[in-house]
Design a protein around this nucleic acid. Sequence first.
DNA 1: ATCTATTTGTACGTATGTATT
DNA 2: AAATACATACGTACAAATAGA
Lengths: 260, 260
Amino acid sequence: MPPVTTPSDPRAADSVSRRSRPERVAEAIKSWVVAENMAPGDKLPGEQELIARFGMAKGTIREAMRLLEAQGLVKTRTGPGGGSFVHAVSDARAQALLGNYFYFKNLTIADIYQLRIALEPELAASLAGRLGEADLAALEANIARYDTPPATADEDRAQHIASLDFHRRLAGHAENPLLGFVIGFMSNMLSDITVSRRLYEPRNYDLWRRGRDHQRALVRALREGDAEAARHTMAAHMRGARDLMEVQEARMARRFLPDR
Amino acid sequence: MPPVTTPSDPRAADSVSRRSRPERVAEAIKSWVVAENMAPGDKLPGEQELIARFGMAKGTIREAMRLLEAQGLVKTRTGPGGGSFVHAVSDARAQALLGNYFYFKNLTIADIYQLRIALEPELAASLAGRLGEADLAALEANIARYDTPPATADEDRAQHIASLDFHRRLAGHAENPLLGFVIGFMSNMLSDITVSRRLYEPRNYDLWRRGRDHQRALVRALREGDAEAARHTMAAHMRGARDLMEVQEARMARRFLPDR
DNA sequence: ATCTATTTGTACGTATGTATT
DNA sequence: AAATACATACGTACAAATAGA
């Protein structure tokens, strides 16, 4: 583990030394993890050893560990064999942290759909012919969850989330982790909306049913390995979904995404 | 500020109470910020008041504040009038946190280009006719930074980063914050690469010069407000840039993104 | 099932650092 | 320059959790 600038360093004015000690310790540990090429599950030095190595107080070291924990990079366990361990940042954590960023922007549903229309067809095409029968069956089972018209606002909402699950599933199968992450993130953001015109109004329901048929056609194209059909079907599905959101006057909820 | 489950709570087994006290305090403060609809700059209660309100020790409160600080949601200042303040998560912070997530995936340059090819043309089209003359001139000045062939590996690298600045600038003008963020993030990820075949080899340089010409044509389309020309020029530019990365056998660096 | 050892988690008092007035 | 109001850091004591005997 590398040394950290000591507190008695006389040149304490540059942008590195201006950071708090916990911050500096956390940075040092991060670059140590890189230098040692550590993998998830590997154990970091214990509290006492860190206190000794950095020459800092227990509280300072603990604050540093909380900084790393909030980033999702370490998990800490008590007891014998306990300690802090390198941890791969989870999907949910990364999404929650990114959601914090957008909490202060005013991201609209139209913004999200601009990316969905560009990316979901790309994902669909790249998945054609690459899903096993079990996964395809799971997608069809998912569609069945919203096969009957919703009768209440609660059912309406549940079906809306269920139809996003379809896209979350696809995202989970993406071989491109960036593509999968962005699409999964958008699906979760869209799960948190409020609508002022309900789905079960005839005009809305018609749009919605067309979307469900698109999903059916999409699974067919995926099964047959027809990438271009999958791409075009998904593109049509996304345009329809965007229109439905507009008709429903859907609005994003203003809250932080949950971490799990 | 809402109360937090007290330490003497007998039902300490569910997924909420299993969180550590600092985590619970941090969550409570986050939902309080939402409930009060606080904005960046607003002051949170001071250490002493939090200690009193939560009935916890100073160290616990401080660890909670470090959790929020790592997420980029609060900044803390010392001195009179100091304390912790709500803070909009910065671009750099959000990118660094998302970069942590991809550190453990193996994201390839091809993965990034799959998204760039889908998204950059969309951004270009949406910017056509919407940039002022000053911004357009800045883009042209940026292109001038790599107008002459690089002579050394250092110049090669500097020009590579400079050409990504062009895209960072465009991303900065995006009206869609999600689109701008994702493109800016990818630009920064691509700034951290190593290449095994240098740009100044004739074949590579030819590809690279074609890219520079695409950027020039793109600025022209943006100035003229021709969205479709901008879209197609950017699409060609992205395909060319991807080919150049492949020819150069570029590889992602394995490190954490800096926070600023 | 209990005890014991190990390791983190919480508490609290004191001293120091830092920025504002 | 001095007083003030705040966070920052330290050190110690004890509590809680967990694995293993």
